[in-house]
Amino acid sequence: MHNLLEMNDVSVRFRARNMEFYALKGIDFSVEPATNIALVGASGSGKTTMAKVFLGFQKPTTGSALYKGKDIYALKGKDLRDFRKNVQPIFQDPYYSLNPVRKIRHVLDMGLFLSKLNKQEKNKAIQEALKRVGLNPPEDFLDKYPHQLSGGQRQRVAIARAFIGNPEVVIADEPVSMLDVSMRAEILNLILDLRKTSNTAFLFITHDLAVAKYISEKIAVINVGEIVEYGYTKDVIGMPVHPYTRLLLDSVLTPDPQISKVKLEKFNKDAMITQPIIPECEKVTTKYVDLGNGHYVKCSQK
């Protein structure tokens, strides 16, 4: 049994004139069926590049990206169609990710492009998809254009489009960061709900550990192109080991003045970065150390 998505020692290198840098450096990562992982990191850490590699948009410079054991960048024919149907994206900005000259009906119809439904069945599926994301009654939305909807409604359409063909995995790149605060919670709850009612695996990309904690079972923390800590959400957030994870946790403020004011006062990036090396690392020669319960931490000196 292969993993749904897998990266084996993936590096992505970008070159500009005579400079080059690695957006991803030797990533090993997999998405198993029906799991739900958050990829967390600051801007420039490589989280979006990882999403692009999995979506088939960014060929790795070295290493391999696999879909069910087959190289994503060598897929052809039926395998490629299968991949396209089963790996679906939700992007950050619902203002740009929907075609402005297409009606919502059409946007969703495109999501069924690879399905074998007849016209009537497609129409029914489209209506169901809109209902599922809370755009009810569907008739009110089918013939609208994206500009006639609010940001929250557009993101719901994007989610409906991603889920309409019952994909095996959905990759969502910061799906709530462009939305107003009052609408974020509704979209997050919608995603939680869809996850519970489907077998779809979910890779959720965010810079906010509080959001990651709310939405996923597992967390991978990524920093300058490398995964530095990985494990169950409760372990990564409850017992963070890597200095970078701790730094990220220290930067998450909370709507409580007493906690947040103290956090702000104590915040000291330099102290966090120069923290001593993880003691568990002394005992191993591998790049990662296993702390138990699938909680891995990268040893920075290796």
Binding site: S150, A210, T254
Partner: peptide
């Protein structure tokens, strides 16, 4: 009150509630 309930927090296990509708 609703805005404060709509923010995910690191502390505790509370679930968040959105505000229906839009501005």
């Amino acid at each position: 009150k609703l805005l404060l309930q709509s923010i995910p927090k690191l502390e505790g296990e509370s679930s968040i509630i959105g505000i229906p509708g839009q501005p």
